[in-house]
């Protein structure tokens, strides 16, 4: 690319035809492993922590025969990474909320994650996922009230053996597409779009304290 072209790339900031799927849940519940299983049909017990915001993209064929680009956003589960969450939630179309059936604490934390989700995205659909059922399949007989309390679709999954993984992502993409078509826009997103200036521009000019950037 020549220098002159780079001066003015002319690209828009967002892609109109992309579905944004976000994953939420405590640290080590298996968010990254679920994505890995879905995207690569693979599971390696070798684990790694995720920091900040990680993005995976896949072209997906939709039910109507058309295709769409789907962005899967993964983030760190530790609470201190919440400072970056406004960017994470921005223009999201669907959320997959994950907990670990082997750790009760991750289930208890769901209410906190859900509260934050609704703060930024009051309208987007959300799917609740109980991961690591391969550790003890008896857990699938248990009743998890959080899903019914909040009227969320609920699935038992295992990133380790692949149970239901494709199903939940297909469901998420379907719901995300539907949400996008219906044209609902979150209040927060609407507000942000009112700002003409990119927060980066403001920060760079020294006029901003940089705390209100959302992209």
């Amino acid at each position: 690319m020549s220098e002159s072209k780079m001066e003015d790339p002319g690209g828009p900031q967002s892609e109109a035809d992309v579905i944004k799927v976000i994953l939420l849940g405590d640290s080590a519940v298996g968010k990254s492993k679920l994505i890995e299983r879905y995207l690569m049909d693979d599971y390696n017990p070798r684990q790694d922590s995720t920091y900040a915001l990680t993005l995976f993209r896949k072209n997906v064929e939709l039910d109507d025969g058309t295709s769409a680009k789907v962005d899967f956003w993964d983030t760190a589960g530790q609470e201190r990474f919440n400072s970056m969450h406004p960017s994470y939630y921005y223009q999201a179309h669907i959320c997959i909320l994950v907990f670990d059936v082997t750790r009760k604490q991750t289930y208890k934390q769901l209410s906190e994650w859900y509260r934050e989700l609704r703060e930024y995205c009051p309208e987007i659909p959300c799917i609740l996922v109980a991961n690591k059922i391969d550790v003890d399949y008896q857990v699938t007989k248990k009743n998890f009230k959080f899903a019914s309390q909040h009227n969320l679709p609920f699935f038992f999954v295992s990133a380790a053996d692949g149970t239901n993984v494709v199903k939940i992502f297909d469901e998420a993409i379907r719901e995300g597409v539907q949400y996008k078509i219906n044209g609902k826009t979150d209040f927060v997103t609407e507000c942000l779009e009112l700002f003409d200036d990119s927060p980066l521009t403001a920060a760079n000019s020294g006029d901003s304290d940089g705390k209100d950037g959302h992209k």
């Binding site: 900031q13 900040a52 992209k215």
Partner: peptide
Amino acid sequence: TYLTKMGVEPFFCIP
């Protein structure tokens, strides 16, 4: 110029 036009936050370098 390119990155600011794309609207990318510098969060990529947090890790």
